[in-house]
């Protein structure tokens, strides 16, 4: 919202000075005794105009001196984050529910929540990589959140094999984010197991993540011990992200909410108040009024 206020409001005291002077300061020119002229009301119109112009010029220049400004938060649609969602589609994801009470498989739960998470990313560029025996790009980085969400919802378990090429996926995500101009690059790594496939080593994947300054939010799904907690927390630690355990559907929802909150707080801190200086508008009006006033006075004197 626009909010006009003045940098130097005390300058308005000058108006009082001008008003006092207009009443008390004596005019240099002497009055002439001429009868009958003042009984004609014809002179009043132009006199009023020059009076209005004089005070308009004074007020506008004082207004310019007091420096009116507007401050607002830039709601720029500029890309602030690029989010890469890494989803484990290995066979283990479809075996059982996220907890004993859940009737849905881990895969279905995680893809529903992931789809909902994607839809909430208003200004973020979102991409999805799925990994099993190998990692591949389900959807590249895009603003079309609707399509990305739809693709995630249509994923099937075992689509990329039975094993887990987690480091390959991480490396692939790094490659995709490498050329992206977003200030904040984020990877959300969702897995329920250990790295069992792929050609990329943990060191290579970590080096790539660190060199690109990508934050990795790692989420381990399932009971403790079912996933590689040490590696996931290491990856999160090295990249400056965070590691979450999601042993129930509710916990997974909360994890997504936490990630969402972290992202938003980052966005807020990155949008400073912008200041617009407006002094040039009253200054322009003041100068024009002054020129007009001077022109009228010169014309009056030279008649």
């Amino acid at each position: 919202m626009f909010d006009v206020h003045f940098e130097y409001p005390f300058v308005w005291l000058l108006v009082v000075l001008f008003i006092v002077c207009s009443v008390w300061c004596k005019r240099k020119s002497q009055s002439l005794y001429i009868p009958h002229l003042l009984s004609m009301p014809l002179h009043v119109k132009r006199y009023k105009l020059s009076f209005v112009l004089k005070w308009l010029s004074i007020v506008m220049m004082i207004l310019a001196l007091s420096s009116p400004i507007t401050q607002y938060q830039s709601n720029s649609v500029k890309l602030s984050h690029a989010v890469m969602l890494l989803m484990d589609v290995s066979e283990s994801m479809s075996r059982a529910g996220i907890d004993a009470r859940s009737s849905k498989s881990k895969f279905n739960t995680s893809k529903e929540l992931a789809a909902s998470f994607i839809e909430q990313r208003e200004n973020d560029n979102v991409g999805v990589i799925v990994f099993g025996d190998f990692a591949y790009v389900a959807t590249p980085l895009t603003f079309d959140h609707q399509s990305a969400s739809s693709i995630v919802q249509n994923l099937n378990e075992g689509i990329a094999g039975t094993r887990t090429a987690m480091y390959d996926a991480l490396f692939l995500a790094t490659r995709l984010l490498q050329k992206n101009s977003a200030k904040e690059k984020v990877v959300i790594l969702l897995t329920d197991g250990f790295n069992t496939a792929g050609k990329i080593t943990l060191e290579a994947a970590l080096r790539a993540v660190e060199s690109e300054k990508i934050k990795v939010y790692a989420i381990g799904i399932g009971r403790s011990g079912e996933y590689d907690e040490t590696i996931l927390s290491l990856i999160a630690l090295k990249s400056g992200g965070a590691f979450f355990r999601a042993s129930s559907e509710q916990m997974l929802v909360e994890v997504y909410q936490k990630i969402d909150a972290m992202q938003k707080s980052l966005q807020k801190s990155e949008t400073p108040m912008r200041t617009n200086y407006l002094y040039m508008y009253p200054l322009l009006v003041g100068i024009l009024a002054l020129f007009w006033y001077v022109w009228i006075r010169v014309r009056e004197e030279s008649l």
Binding site: Q30, S31, P35, H36, L42, H43, Y47, E301, L303
Partner: peptide, 22 residues
């Protein structure tokens, strides 16, 4: 042109522009 005029009857003071139209 512009004159500061004082009326000798009412002693009222004002500005008058003595131009052709006036």
């Amino acid at each position: 042109g512009a004159l500061h005029v004082k009326d000798p009857i009412t002693l009222k003071e004002d500005k008058v522009i003595l131009d052709e139209a006036f």
